[in-house]
């Protein structure tokens, strides 16, 4: 019983450690995920937060709060092609806030598609359904 308790505690600690590090900025995931995470840090985290939770340093005066990419339920309803359109052409193109700018001049088409896959990875939407 004690042994089981210690094992359970260990499991909780391990899960906690993983949760703290999720989503990882750069980890041992696939190279595409790691590359997208790096780009997210530079371009997206300023508003969407270093923990991908919509609480970036720039949200202090924003009239519309950025989307929480760690929100599994909220993100699950967002189709991948809509993510790609929002990132490419800005929030206004998908009837969301114009404060989300278009990134097609900075990121390539492939990088944007990889970013959509990364968002699905971050929100754990693929496993939740």
């Amino acid at each position: 019983m004690i042994r089981f308790g210690i094992a359970a505690l260990g499991l909780v600690a391990l899960t906690g450690a993983i949760a703290t590090h999720q989503p990882a900025t750069a980890g041992s995931e696939s190279p595409k995920i790691a590359a997208s995470a790096h780009l997210y840090d530079i371009y997206c985290a300023q508003c969407h937060g270093v923990q991908r939770n919509g609480k970036g340093v720039n949200t202090v005066g924003l009239s519309v709060q950025p989307r929480d990419h760690s929100d599994t339920a909220g993100m699950s309803s967002l189709p991948r092609d809509q993510m790609i359109k929002a990132i490419s052409e800005g929030g206004g193109s998908v009837n969301k806030s114009a404060l989300m700018p278009a990134w097609s001049a900075v990121l390539s088409k492939e990088q944007i598609e990889d970013m959509a896959d990364y968002l699905i990875y971050v929100c754990k939407c693929g496993t939740a359904q």
Binding site: A45, G49, V50, Q51, K55, G56, V57, T59, V60
Partner: peptide, 8 residues
């Protein structure tokens, strides 16, 4: 940047 509440 440091993560935090209510924001980074």
């Amino acid at each position: 940047a440091k993560p935090g509440e209510p924001r980074d």
